[in-house]
Each structure stands twice: as structure tokens, then as C-alpha cells.
């Protein structure tokens, strides 16, 4: 593990048992069914940088976020934060320490704030949970500071979430996430429930906070333009696997994996008008994924090897790509 990386995910697997009930299974002689939401995923994030995961719905990007946050227990693999393995962390103090240092921002600012709590209590919850304030006065001061930091006013703490608009609520979630003084934020589609003019405000706030506090972000989104704006490194996911990990500039100027290329072509182009080519087909059912490279049924470059053998990530310049066609220099 390199010196600078804050988070290191190695061979993360997240399987869900989606079998029918036991009796049905026995009567109909059905096998167990396992949904491989994340299947052997590895990446690392440097301190102070933003790593983004992008992909279509159902590709497992949110599952990765939840596993890293410790909301799911990983089936297999290691999640190492600053040298400490999350999966094998023993003892309450260690777990508390890790969870204080990372916080999560969720997609919907409507569902993630308790409507019956005042904003100051919502923001103070992590402070109380991790016992970070000396007394009530100190806690209040910290909450007020956080409110100002995210662009709200000190008096907003007295209000309830319903009194705020979507963008302001997302600011409250960010304030809550920052209240335990974390180094690492997991942002699961933080702007996709917001209108574009508000999205820009939230993205700018996140950039400012990163500069100010030296935060590291794991950013999940399906919007490539947002990803391009905020990220340093990007991982493209398809059906639970990473097909390409690359620095931002490389992804957009020199995409290597056929899926990445197709994904880039499907972005609605504001300036150019109507020239995008619709990508044929849809994401297959993840319970019964295609054999070999899971992208082969939609891939224009697939050959017999792709239907048979699962590609692994290999390095090409600064990027890592999992594709036989790239490996064989066919594309």
C-alpha cells in the first residue's frame, strides 16, 4: 500500500442471497440464487483526492459505497482505511475511530434527514455519538460554525428540515457529515435529486470544503459531466466489476474500454445537438450475468475469447483496463 493512499479496497466482493424461500426451493428443485452485486473490486484513493465510480443503475456502485461505509459486511475482500482493515477491526474503540473519520452523504436530502428533529440536533448527532464536545455550549458553537461553513445561517439550527429547499437540505446533510471532523466522505449521488442550478452550488461547496479541510471523496454518480467536474480519478463499473480505472483527463480524451467509449457517446450533448448514438441493449440481469466478460453481448469488439474468459485489470499507461480486445490490441 502506497504512502499517500487513504483508502485501499482490495478484491471487494459483496454477494446477496436472493434465493426463493426454502420450501419453494425444495419443492421446485431450484438452486440457491446469489446476486453478485460487487465481484472482486480493487481501487485506492489518494489522500485529498476525489475518486468517482460511474455506471448505469444496478452496476453496484452504491453497494460499494455502503460496503466502504461499513453499512454492509463485505462477503470477501479488504477495505483498508489509513492502514487499518475495516473488516477485521476489533474492539469498539478502533471501530469508533474509523467511523468517526469517515462519513456519508446520501442521495435524497428528503429521506436522509429526520423530519422530527431540529436541524441543530441533526447536525449535533455525530458530535454526541463520538463525544466530541466539552459541554453543551461547545456543541452549540460547533453546530453554528458548521452551519455557516456550508452556507446557511446560525439561526437555521432552530428550524426543522421541512422549512428548507432541496439544496439547503443537502447543505444540512453535508454539515452533519462534517461534524465529526472526518477526513473521508462517501458521497452517493449527492446532487442527482437536485435541480441543475442548485447542483452547481452543492458541487462548488464540496470543492471548497475539500480545499479547506483536505477532504478525500469517494464520489458515486451516473452523470458523466458531474464526474468530469469533480473527480481526479474515475472508475467505470459494469455489472459489479470495474472495467476501467483512469485519471480524469485520460477517461474523456482517451477512453480505452469499449463500454467507456459507448457510455461517453450516449451523453446528451448540449452544444452539439442531436448526434448521439443510442447504445444498443440494456444491462443484463445481474443474477444471471453473461459468461466471460459480462459486457460481451453489447460489445461491438467481442470475440470468442470474450464469451469464455473473464478479463482482468491490466495497466496501460496511467490507466487500468479489463478488456481482451485492448489486451490483444484489437482496438
Amino acid at each position: 500500500m502506497s504512502e499517500q493512499s487513504l483508502l485501499e479496497v482490495q478484491g471487494l466482493k459483496m454477494y446477496f442471497d436472493v434465493s426463493p424461500p426454502l420450501v419453494t426451493r425444495l419443492l421446485n428443485r431450484m438452486p440457491r440464487q446469489v446476486l453478485k452485486a460487487v465481484d472482486g473490486l480493487s481501487f485506492s484513493i489518494e489522500r485529498g483526492k476525489t475518486f468517482s465510480l460511474v455506471g448505469e443503475s444496478g452496476c453496484g456502485k452504491s453497494t460499494v459505497a455502503r460496503a466502504v461505509a461499513g453499512l454492509y459486511k463485505a462477503t470477501d475482500g479488504n477495505i483498508i482505511i489509513d492502514g487499518q482493515d475495516l473488516a477485521n477491526a476489533n474492539g469498539k474503540s478502533k471501530i469508533t475511530d474509523i467511523s468517526r473519520r469517515m462519513q456519508m452523504i446520501f442521495q435524497s436530502p428528503y429521506a436522509s434527514l429526520d423530519p422530527r428533529w431540529r436541524v441543530r440536533d441533526i447536525i449535533a448527532e455525530p458530535i454526541r455519538a463520538f463525544d466530541l464536545a466539552n459541554d453543551k455550549r461547545d456543541e452549540r458553537r460547533q453546530v453554528e460554525q458548521l452551519l455557516v461553513q456550508v452556507g446557511l445561517s446560525e439561526s437555521d439550527g432552530e428550524k426543522y428540515p421541512h422549512e428548507f429547499s432541496g439544496g439547503q437540505r443537502q447543505r444540512i446533510s453535508i454539515a452533519r457529515a462534517l461534524s465529526s471532523k472526518p477526513e473521508f466522505l462517501i458521497c452517493d449521488e449527492p446532487t442527482s435529486a437536485l435541480d441543475v442550478s442548485v447542483q452547481a452550488q452543492i458541487l462548488n461547496l464540496m470543492t471548497e470544503l475539500q480545499d479547506e479541510l483536505g477532504l478525500t471523496y469517494l464520489f458515486i454518480s451516473h452523470d458523466l459531466a458531474v464526474i468530469d467536474h469533480i473527480s481526479d480519478w474515475i472508475g467505470v463499473m459494469y455489472l459489479g466489476r470495474v472495467c476501467e480505472i483512469t485519471p480524469k483527463a485520460e477517461l474523456f480524451s482517451n477512453p480505452r474500454h469499449p463500454y467507456t467509449k459507448l457510455l461517453l457517446e450516449t451523453i446528451p450533448d448540449l452544444r452539439g445537438g442531436s448526434h448521439r448514438k443510442p447504445l444498443e441493449g440494456e444491462v443484463p440481469n445481474p443474477i444471471t450475468p453473461p459468461s466471460g466478460c459480462t459486457f460481451h453481448p453489447r460489445c461491438p469488439f467481442a470475440n470468442e475469447r470474450c464469451t469464455r474468459e473473464q478479463p482482468v485489470l491490466k495497466e496501460y499507461g496511467p490507466a487500468k483496463v479489463a478488456c481482451h480486445a485492448v489486451d490483444e490490441e484489437r482496438i
Binding site: V196, A200, Q201, L203, V226, D228, H229, F252, I267
Partner: peptide, 16 residues
Amino acid sequence: SIPQIGQNLKILPNIV
């Protein structure tokens, strides 16, 4: 305020 690919802006213009 709509982010564009390849725009490379640190801060997006936005409506306050």
C-alpha cells in the same frame, strides 16, 4: 451552471 465535459472549471458558475 450545467457542468460540461472537458470544461475544466474549478468552480462552476451558479445562480445564488
